[in-house]
Simulated scan of single mutants.
Amino acid sequence: MDVDKIDPYDDSRVTHEKANVNGQTYHYILGLPGNNNATIKGTIFLIHGWPDLSIGWRYQIPILLEMGFRVVAPDMMGYGGTDAPQVPPAPLSLYGMKRAADDIAELARQLNAPKIVLGGHDWGGAVVWRAAMWHPELITHVFSVCTPFAPVHKQYISTEDMVKGPLPQFGYQLHLASPEVEGKITTKEEIRQFLNGMYGGKGASGELMFDPTKGIIFENLLKVGKSKLLTERELEYYVDQYHRNGLHGTVNWYRTREINWEEDQQLKSSNIDIPTLYVQAEYDHVLLPSMGRGMGKYLSNLTVRSVPATHWALTQKPQAVNIIIKEWIECVVLGGKSKL
């Protein structure tokens, strides 16, 4: 069964907008339910991860509009039509989670949204958990696809120590944080192959371009074929957007671990008491479902559901994801329950 989705270039249900947010230009997708005269039940912000864009939520936006919500999906710092400041001279903190949370809050203010529901995937999932902690006055509900909640740690744990210890599948983060990836993937053809590989494309003999423990396998970059998760039109859109500023801004997110930890120390608690939803992907090889165990210790109104999908659950299993999100919104966001 086909699932409705937003066209990246031209779709009457959404517009592509720009806003100056805390000194940086953001591009965002804006969708209004029905028509301009429809009663808006609320505003939902959708936050993407790496290597994605706001259009990564293309299968979820239509159903949220049908449910009566205004939808705002920004390209995050360094991505697509949003600014991608070069570091240095710009401070690396521009790519930190507190800055992302503050930018969400400012964009909500500009859109006259005193309360919002916040959804995230991948890095976007990490952002929405922290945004709920930084801006509890703004965010009424949070949902995250694939990304489990991580509490504030009093002691700094480097990416290197995580890889040597409990999370060897985070080895790719060390590679992305190095200068190599952004330096070697620069042309449109290289970006095209990179995106095909990241979204599951394989070579004729099954070659993979991405290994969670190692990162990008450059020798397979030109071998991988077309991803099944992106149409040719969608792939062209992604390539154009990523070629705009290259990969520098996007991989800066992997260089902010210590900055994020330092800023976390200002938070008084790891507890989130608003209703939350965690949708785990059963076959995610990086954000393992087991990483979500114990989340209920910090999230008092947590609902957990799962989908038979890899990390790209939003586009691989959109119907299953949408059913979960819709039920949670109907019962919790609109129905007033604390959890399912």
Rank of each mutant, 00 (worst) to 15 (best):
D7E: 09
D7Q: 03
D11P: 12
T15M: 10
E17N: 13
V21Q: 11
Q24I: 14
Q24T: 14
T25E: 12
I29V: 13
L30K: 10
G31K: 02
L32V: 13
G34W: 03
N37M: 12
I44E: 02
I44K: 08
I44T: 09
I44S: 07
L46E: 00
I47Q: 11
W57N: 10
R58I: 05
Y59L: 09
Q60C: 09
I61Q: 08
I63G: 13
G68F: 10
F69D: 10
F69P: 14
V71K: 08
V71C: 08
V71H: 05
A73T: 03
M77Q: 07
G78W: 01
A84V: 08
Q86V: 15
Q86G: 05
V87I: 11
P89D: 10
P89T: 13
A90C: 14
M97R: 14
R99N: 05
R99Q: 11
A100M: 06
A105Q: 08
A108V: 09
A113N: 00
K115W: 05
V117W: 01
D122C: 08
G124K: 05
V128Y: 06
M133P: 04
M133R: 14
W134C: 02
F143C: 10
C146P: 01
T147R: 03
H153D: 10
K154H: 13
Q155P: 07
S158K: 04
D161T: 13
V163D: 01
K164C: 00
G165Q: 01
G165C: 03
P166S: 12
L167D: 10
L167H: 15
P168F: 00
Y172D: 07
L174F: 01
E180V: 14
T186N: 15
L195G: 01
G197N: 08
G197Y: 04
Y199A: 03
K202T: 12
G206A: 12
G215C: 05
I216K: 00
I217N: 06
N220I: 15
K226Q: 15
K226I: 07
S227M: 02
K228F: 10
K228R: 14
L229D: 08
L229S: 06
E232M: 08
Y237S: 07
V239T: 06
Y242M: 07
N245Q: 13
N245D: 12
G246N: 05
L247N: 08
V251H: 00
W253I: 00
Y254F: 15
R255T: 00
T256C: 12
T256H: 00
R257C: 00
E258A: 03
E258H: 06
E258N: 04
W261F: 06
D264Y: 01
S270D: 11
I272K: 05
I272C: 11
L277R: 04
D284F: 05
M291L: 14
M295Q: 15
M295H: 12
N301T: 04
V304G: 09
V304D: 06
P308E: 07
W312L: 11
A313F: 05
P318S: 02
Q319Y: 11
I323P: 03
I323N: 09
I324P: 09
V332M: 06
V332Q: 03
S338D: 08
K339D: 03
L340E: 02
L340V: 01
